[in-house]
Design a binder for these strands. Structure first.
Lengths: 185, 185
DNA sequence: CGCGTTCTCTAGCGGCGCTAGGATCGCTGT
DNA sequence: ACAGCGATCCTAGCGCCGCTAGAGAACGCG
């Protein structure tokens, strides 16, 4: 039986290799450069092995996105603990994440439509990130439902992040925008 | 000289034909189905004709997006005039636009990164839509800069629209979210 | 009518995501 | 020790993509 375990271990290592390679390639040259051929070349296997791990290219990107959600959750947690005002800290950390890891943020939100949210099989990392936001919002909720208010706050952050990233909003006064948003919460 | 004018007119008609065909095809089968081959077939010309009008496929999508901005601006204007509370009306109209014309909204915000915003050559329709939002926000701005506050409000709406569209937020309680957002403005 | 420009098409390039089918490797039972 | 047999992996190729070069047709003009 140990043989199968070793094989399974090797499989999972290779799966990590694929996901990491996809992320590195995307961070180096953008998601357009992430093709199955280039990915296969980078991991030194042939194309078809990708399909023995993932259903298709989208699934690989979704795996990168899940990693991204885990990192985002970790950074939000750290920011909530460290900042004088948790909500400010979390919001700043969120915008910083989107700004410094654009490739991850794209995978998480712009691409990969079929990641289950608010479902039984939702990856834990996704829930965790939202949880961090909710705990930061809760003290400011007043009579409002904290969960729903968190959704609104998250949407505002997401909007700021994506509109800025897409060149729709000039980057320079982002701090001012964030201040106005926080003042209203 | 009249001959050149006639030709120019025909060219512009064909350009409209291309943009409309792209939009119709996208609305019928999604943007993935909009390929240069299928588009050429639909307008009953060969592929290279497309490239005598537009630099590439992205430019065609950008043209559809500009049409979208014009429609959005028109709907926001109507909503601002008709609603009891302008801000509520405009916000509702914005979310309704994203919900009922997902294909246009995608072209405007998810794709086509290289539409100039806040630049000399920014299409007027883009400015107009933002102007409608700004006029609706202004009475609620208090001591805040209305333009910046409008950006924040727009970002919040955009976030709600995209997160809902991507399945990140369940659609059912969108009205409740909008109420919470409006209450904070 | 013949000429030159202007337009449009056929054909093809390199690359894409993905898959079928055969070769090869490594474990297993005799 | 070795033949048999799955599991594993690669070569080759399908149909499609965005885009372009170059041939040929259509059209206004002298």
């Amino acid at each position: 039986m140990a043989i199968q375990e070793r094989r399974e271990r090797a499989r999972q290592e290779r799966e990590r290799l694929i996901v990491d390679a996809a992320r590195e390639l995307a961070e180096a040259e953008g998601w357009d450069a992430v093709t199955t051929r280039r990915l296969a070349e980078r991991i030194e296997y042939s194309q078809p092995v990708l399909y023995s791990h993932f259903k298709g290219k989208d699934a690989i990107m979704a795996a990168v996105a899940v990693d991204g959600f885990a990192e985002l959750a970790a950074e939000l947690r750290a920011a909530r603990g460290a900042a004088a005002d948790p909500l400010t800290g979390v919001a700043t950390a969120y915008l910083a994440f989107a700004e410094t890891r654009p490739v991850l943020y794209e995978a998480m939100f712009t691409h990969s439509v079929d990641l289950a949210f608010a479902r039984p099989d939702t990856p834990a990392a996704l829930q965790a990130g939202f949880g961090e936001l909710r705990e930061a919002v809760r003290p400011r909720a007043g009579d409002d439902d904290p969960a729903v208010l968190t959704e609104v706050f998250w949407a505002a952050l997401h909007g700021l992040a994506t509109l800025t990233r897409g060149g729709r909003l000039p980057r320079e006064i982002q701090e001012q925008r964030l201040a106005l948003l926080l003042a209203r919460f």
